[in-house]
């Protein structure tokens, strides 16, 4: 168990979960975090500039002008 003890216990999640309760909805905090991250990552993926894309556009424009 020593390997797991060393490698696997930076944060101990082996305790009963906290929950988010809203009307009839009861979700574990861990699941809410995962679902929230999905939305966040999706938003970032469509909003953040993709490296190289603007550069390619600029190069193309210059190429077209020359």
């Amino acid at each position: 168990m020593s390997f797991a003890g060393v490698m696997g216990a930076a944060f101990n999640l082996n305790h009963p979960a906290h929950t988010v309760d809203w009307h009839f909805i009861h979700l574990s905090v861990a699941n809410v975090v995962v679902i929230g991250l999905m939305f966040l990552v999706f938003l970032l993926a469509i909003l953040l500039p993709f490296p190289g894309a603007a550069g390619r556009r600029a190069a193309r424009r210059n190429g077209g002008a020359s």
């Binding site: 999640l13 082996n14 305790h15 009963p16 979960a17 906290h18 929950t19 909805i25 009861h26 979700l27 574990s28 905090v29 861990a30 699941n31 975090v33 995962v34 679902i35 999905m38």
Partner: peptide, 20 residues
């Protein structure tokens, strides 16, 4: 928090993410 009425079928034991 694994009972059906606790939305348990999404949940994992402990505070780990389950099956969102």
């Amino acid at each position: 928090h694994l009972l059906g009425k606790q939305w348990g079928l999404m949940n994992e034991t402990g505070s780990f993410p389950g099956q969102p």
